[in-house]
Every structure is written in C-alpha cells, then in structure tokens.
C-alpha cells in the first residue's frame, strides 16, 4: 500500500540535477530554458536541485574529459537510489565534435550508466522534457510498474 503511494510519488516528483561536464553552454541554456514560464517543468513536479543528494535524475551536458570524469562519477555515486541519468546533446551522447581530442573520454556512458539519450546540438527544451518523461518510463520498468 505504502509502496504504491511511494511509487506514485517517484513518478510525479523527479528532481533533476544538471551537471555541465564541459559543454559549450548551448545545451545548458536549453536546460535552463525548461525552467522558464514558457516551458515550466515544475508542472510535472520537476525541480532543478543543486545537490546530488536531493536529485533523482542527473542531466549531463557536454563531453566527458579525463579531468572531469572523476567529478561526474562522484556526483553519480552521491545520488541515492533509485536514480536515472540523461545524457543531453551530441557531446554528452558521444563526445560530439570533440570526440577525437586528446583529452576527451567520449560520451557520458563511458563513465556512468545512461538511461536516456537526448540528441541535438543543442537539444531543444521540448526534447529535454521528453527525455525526462522517457526516463520516468524507464523508472517504471525498473520498478516493475510498466504494462
């Protein structure tokens, strides 16, 4: 019974934390655009929090390099379960145009498991919101609620 309520809460209150892993800020601006009155992601109970300990969903933009991969891993580790990761933009997906650079590791999934990939350069706010909704579907599957 309580579990049912908790699961309902899990689907209706995905707090996101946004980590800029070395993005050109294009995707970051689009992430922030989601918070503006035009898109107003708080409609879905989504809040942008500043701390992995409060977050359910990690939004990562930008390429992962050898310097910040530790930070990315640390942040991911500090998020309490259940959690999901969304990689945003071409760079987050694969390293983008920086893919071949000497210091670049590649996409986010080289360091932490990624649940949803949102393509685009930059990704559109609608796509990002869709990404979060898709992540919730994944969570549903993980919780055994899909069907």
């Amino acid at each position: 019974m309580l579990e049912k309520f908790i699961n309902a809460g899990r689907l209706k209150s995905p707090w996101i934390m946004h980590f800029d892993c070395g993005s050109c800020n294009g995707c970051d601006i689009e992430v922030l655009a989601c918070l503006t009155p035009l898109y107003d992601i708080e409609r879905f109970g989504i809040i942008n929090v500043g701390n992995p300990k409060h977050a359910d969903v990690l939004l990562v933009t930008g390429t992962v390099n050898h310097r910040n991969k530790h930070v990315l891993k640390n942040l991911y580790d500090q998020m309490p379960d259940p959690k999901a990761v969304i990689a945003i933009g071409a760079c987050g997906l694969s390293g983008g145009v920086f893919r071949e650079a000497y210091n670049v590791v590649g996409g986010v999934d080289k360091v932490i498991p990624v649940d949803v990939y949102v393509p685009g350069c930059p990704s559109r706010p609608e796509a990002i919101i869709d990404g979060v909704v898709e992540a919730l579907e994944r969570v549903k599957v993980k919780l055994g609620l899909a069907g």
């Binding site: 908790i6 309902a8 809460g9 899990r10 209706k12 209150s13 359910d56 309490p80 379960d81």
Partner: peptide
C-alpha cells in the same frame, strides 16, 4: 505529498 512520498522511498 508526491515529493515527500518519493523521498521516503529513496535509499
């Protein structure tokens, strides 16, 4: 309430 319920279910 959704927020608090979710938080209660976290590890």
């Amino acid at each position: 309430f959704y927020d608090v319920l979710k938080l209660l279910g976290k590890r």
